[in-house]
């Protein structure tokens, strides 16, 4: 391990350093991913640009109309613990709480989790499901990219040289929108996900709308299970529909076999966890009969 350490204090300075050192510099936020990449010699950057000294990128805030913005340097732990998020976007804090151990969450940032672009990135499925977008600043100025279009492959994103993610923006959700994120792993939060599933839906009476099923760790990038969503959209949900949707999600997932699990096992688990996630979001007739309106 060997590099020079640069510490910009503004976004502009960071962008300019990254452009100057053209391809030889890497951004570090918390470093929980980057330090391991460097340590194992997966990458050998000559310069490390520490964006941790840039003030004002660490926040969770709500606009007048309920739109949520999260600064890129906000730690995963702050997102997990945020009282506002727990109340208004619980699925985001719930997903954050499943990323690594407390000591990793204390240092790792949301910007880092997304920019590292692991197919299993814990915060991605729920944010994609909520329609999040990223504010990106670079040498050519500012742009916004939806999170769904952000990932291009394992470890790959649309970020161009010199660009930084500065904010995660989540549009306000219609009333009665609910979400659940489930992580399946061997060692609880400590281990990376074998399968991650976010289910989000708006309940309009008995019907469910804006259904989003987003899968992690079972494709080169976090992916929407559109066929599964289609099975549920606008419908009154019952067990048969849930079964169809879970099967559809399993069919459209494209997992690989790796140290954590085989592709076949992952496909099976997509079914199991999609079923469970939908049940967590939408009360079925059986559930309503026993638990009131749910």
């Amino acid at each position: 391990m060997r590099f020079d350490y640069l510490e910009p204090h503004t976004i502009k300075e960071a962008v300019s350093l990254l452009s100057t050192y053209n391809g030889q510099a890497k951004v570090i936020a918390g470093g929980t991913d980057l330090m391991n990449l460097i340590r194992t010699k997966m990458i050998k950057p000559e310069y490390i640009v520490d964006i941790g000294h840039i003030a004002g990128l660490d926040y969770v805030k709500y606009g007048d109309k309920g739109a949520l913005s999260i600064g890129a340097l906000t730690t995963i732990r702050a997102i997990e613990m945020s009282a506002q998020l727990k109340e208004r976007h619980p699925v985001v804090s719930q997903a954050a709480g499943q990323l690594g151990s407390m000591a990793i969450r204390n240092v790792g940032t949301i910007g880092g989790n997304l920019c590292n672009a692991a197919p299993c990135a814990e915060t991605a499925p729920s944010l994609i499901g909520l329609g999040a977008a990223l504010k990106i600043v670079g040498p050519a100025g500012e742009r916004t990219v939806t999170l769904e279009d952000f990932f291009t492959g394992p470890g790959q994103t649309v970020l161009q040289r010199g660009e930084l993610v500065v904010e995660i923006q989540v549009p306000s959700q219609p009333p009665h929108t609910r979400g659940v994120y489930l992580k399946h792993s061997v060692r609880g939060t400590e281990d990376l996900a074998i399968v991650g599933v976010a289910a989000i839906a708006t309940l309009e009476g008995e019907r469910c709308r804006n259904v989003k099923i987003v899968l992690g760790a079972v494709a080169p990038i976090p992916m929407r299970a559109r066929n599964a969503e289609g099975k549920l959209e606008g419908k009154e949900i019952d067990d048969a529909l849930i079964e169809n949707a879970a099967q559809a999600a399993s069919d459209e997932s494209q997992p690989i076999t790796d140290v954590r699990a085989s592709a076949d096992y992952r496909k099976e688990m997509v079914k199991v966890f999609t079923r469970q996630a939908i049940r967590g979001v939408v009360p079925t007739p059986m559930h309503r009969a026993f638990c009131g309106t749910g």
Partner: peptide, 12 residues
């Protein structure tokens, strides 16, 4: 706050 010092740069 608890932090894993093996992944944390001294500069930070």
């Amino acid at each position: 706050k608890a932090v894993m010092s093996c992944l944390y740069l001294a500069m930070k």
